[in-house]
């Protein structure tokens, strides 16, 4: 479960460099997110554009990260691919998170390719 964090001033951008957040990695994902994000910027944007598949364990882990960072930090999600977006939509977790089509431009060092 490779995650990379980039400090972008007011926000911490964490990118998931894995195609799946599933039952095999859900616990590690949650622990790694805690290590990278806890006590850092109040706004945390999770770039999920590389994630092609998310199961209910993965969804539960993302919700768990939202809960463990609150209330001092806010978790936002960016770049949900279609299959991942469907799981959020069906479970209505899309109403719980702030979702961005991609990492907001003011948080990107390089222009999108």
């Amino acid at each position: 479960m490779e995650l990379t964090a980039e400090d972008c001033g007011a926000a911490l951008v964490i990118r998931v460099n894995a195609a799946r957040i599933d039952a095999a990695v859900a616990i590690r994902f949650k622990e790694r997110m805690r290590e990278l994000a806890e006590g850092r910027a109040p706004r945390v944007v999770l770039d999920m554009s590389a994630v092609e598949f998310l199961d209910s364990s993965g969804l539960g882990a993302v919700v768990a990260v939202l809960k463990l960072l609150a209330p001092a930090q806010r978790l936002e999600l960016a770049g949900l691919t279609p299959a991942v977006a469907r799981v959020f939509r069906l479970t209505r977790m899309d109403t719980v998170f702030t979702l961005h089509p991609e990492v907001p431009a003011d948080l990107r060092l390089r222009p999108a390719v």
């Binding site: 539960g60 768990a64 809960k67 609150a70």
Partner: peptide
């Protein structure tokens, strides 16, 4: 937020 479910999505 603190009461959101972290599971129970599968059978739904």
């Amino acid at each position: 937020v603190e009461s959101l479910p972290e599971g129970g999505f599968g059978w739904f």
